[in-house]
Write a protein that binds this DNA or RNA. Structure first.
Lengths: 342, 342
DNA sequence: GTGAAAGCGCTAACAA
DNA sequence: TTGTTAGCGCTTTCAC
């Protein structure tokens, strides 16, 4: 392996031209005679010459690489966002340098620093656990876009997100239209409720449809179906049984369904369940979960487009895109038992 | 943004030393006086100096970046492999440059070329759709490791995989031990059967336990549960009903369960179902699928360790790691109906 | 159209 | 211990 790799000089020598000529040919300049161009191309092919992007980056002062910090690859949400990022990156001529931080702020910070040392042209953060101060600081060096962060905006940082208030409203309204009133919410970890737009969206939607008195929120979890299971169990253990639940995501919804099953309640005849994210899980035929859908692919595409605008200097002010989710109705929602009718 | 970034020269000037001294300090050389080191550190901090990894890569002739070609991020199988890769990469001081090719050979080839131009130190391929010739060629330039490829070995290319023959055997033996004889297999797309180790493993295992006459294979699909649904429907439509099915993966297994449900058969009372991959789907409580488990995280870790060995020159010959899967028994397998007993 | 020369930011001899 | 010098492979003026 690894005999010394040919450089632009080797090609120049073999083609009998200067290295600047080779450089022009490689970059497809029109101002080169056909004869020389062919000679250079042939020499390059014969040598198996491959331009060194590192050297090029050094002189061009840009790498055409976008750094990507992913908090959690397991979350199917991100897989599709990354697909959108990839597709747009390919179109625009960027590569993606992948970093992870396992949701540990210190690790994520270290990853960002490493990415910046590698002179990425821009940074895209997928639901980072990073302190905002770090993000703001990074934004002073390269364009930064945050995708899917539930929280505060950071000066100079672009964001792409989904309207959770609208998504939860769609779910609540769907259930209300079916005749439900006792609509409960299985949330994430308790300490985050205050900041969780889905939890707040649920509360606001319930209030708007005049069901504020029927609001009921229990603790669940984003990351396992156990959280949803236990949340549902708590709902069944005390108080009047809800006829519908809105889960914070699909995994929690599936956990809730398991709990209902174990307690002998049928879905949707006894209790309706709505998930959130419209993940692959929701689409599985055996589950067939009604779920709020976010255009994840589009979020990725927009994020890459956003950093591209910034890299090219097309846009200077921070931009914020909020996509509208929609509701995918499947088989876990229906009228409540003993439905009073319309 | 982007006032001119400070370089090693700026730091040197401010600290009143030469740039090589700065270089030494940054790289943590012990042969520097404490006074100078502090001066350099302070100057660097004051300027917000960040080493330029591009320049460093150019002179060091290595980037500490490993290229990763991922065929399908949606497949939860890969998410965990990538986790293993990440963890080991972090430990060993590598970053990962992510490329994708959407299973299109031409696109994947282009991605590999781009990664090589970026002078990655090694290349890791996750179930590539790439022609072997391209892989072999890449292996002449950088160390290459293929993860999870069902197929032929390529000269000079390391592989990390899982023993599908063993995995299918575990599943078949589990079912046989429960008393099953009519054990069917829902495979992938028909044209791939010949090369699919899981399909062949099923056949071999059935033969080994003396049930060759009971073998039955139907076409399914890797990528959607519909394939499993239809495969199961075909099994139920004609011939003696199997008492157990081994699906090519979890998604197909879940599809099969949905079909059984729709036809009024209970799982596992009437028909047992075994999946493959032990994905998050299988673990979901409501599905609780018996499934063959591969240590995906370990596969990722081993792949990164393998390229590291090669980069460092510790090992020159191609290596092949085949991990042993195990069976995770959950709630979709049980004795066949009217079990003849042990 | 083509070539010579400078320099991107850094490391690595080699001197001192 | 510290500084000087020469590149790494490429792009980019600027002459010719």
């Amino acid at each position: 392996m690894n005999r010394q790799r040919p450089t632009i000089n080797d090609v120049a020598a073999r083609a009998g031209v200067s290295k600047s000529l080779v450089s022009l040919v490689i970059r497809g300049s029109p101002n080169v005679s056909a004869a020389r161009r062919d000679a250079v191309r042939q020499a390059a092919a014969e040598l198996g010459y491959r331009p060194n992007a590192v050297a090029r980056s050094l002189v061009e002062q840009r790498t055409h690489i976008v750094g990507l910090l992913v908090s959690d690859l397991h979350n199917p949400f991100f897989a599709e966002v990354i697909d959108g990022l990839q597709d747009e990156a390919r179109r625009l001529g960027y590569r993606m340098l992948l970093g992870s931080g396992n949701r540990v702020p210190a690790e994520e910070e270290e990853t960002v620093e490493a990415l910046l040392q590698l002179r990425i042209d821009a940074l895209i953060l997928l639901s980072p656990a990073l302190p905002p101060a770090i993000v703001r600081q990074a934004a002073q060096t390269v364009p930064v876009t945050v995708v899917g962060h539930r929280g505060t905006r950071i000066p100079g940082v672009d964001t792409v997100g989904s309207d959770d208030a609208l998504g939860t409203a769609l779910a609540v309204e769907h259930l209300v239209a079916l005749g439900h009133r006792r609509i409960a919410h299985i949330a994430g970890a308790r300490r985050r409720w205050g900041a969780d737009p889905r939890c707040r969206g649920y509360e606001a939607a319930m209030e708007r449809v005049g069901l504020a008195a029927f609001r009921r929120i229990v603790e669940g979890d984003y990351t396992t179906d156990e959280g949803g299971y236990e949340g549902m169990a708590r709902l069944l253990a005390s108080g009047p049984r809800p006829t519908a639940v809105l889960a914070v995501n699909d995994l929690a919804a599936v956990g809730a369904i398991a709990a209902l099953d174990d307690h002998g309640h049928r879905v949707p005849e006894d209790v309706s369940v709505v998930g959130y994210d419209n993940s692959a899980l929701a689409a599985v035929r055996h589950l067939s979960l009604t779920s709020v859908n976010q255009s994840r692919w589009e979020m990725g595409r927009l994020a890459m487009a956003a950093v591209h605008d910034r890299i090219e200097g097309t846009r200077r002010r921070a931009g914020h895109r909020v996509l509208a989710p929609d509701l995918v109705v499947r088989n876990t929602t229906g009228p409540p038992p003993a439905c009073p009718g319309p």
